[in-house]
Amino acid sequence: MIKRKDVEHAAALAKLKLNKEEKEKYTEQIGEILNYVDKLNELNTDGVVPTAYTVPMKNVLREDKVEKSLPRERSLANAPDQKDGQFRAPKIMSD
């Protein structure tokens, strides 16, 4: 059964802040969902190959050819903050 600390850990990995109520609510709801998901164990999958792609394809490759990049203003057009042609983010760590 998923516990509150599991939800907190997953949220931390996903860089999601959750408030107290969300943590409680999600622990309960996700518990129910995973409980439902547990029904997968009723099916015997010994020796079954997992499916990642429903249409069987392989080796889809492109030639090593340079194509036009975006004009830099366009690359930066949606940036919340920028400086000297670079994206700007807050400092990496606090003290």
Partner: peptide, 8 residues
């Protein structure tokens, strides 16, 4: 497990 069930 889910990917295997997907195969089934």
């Amino acid at each position: 497990k889910a990917q295997k069930v997907r195969t089934l």
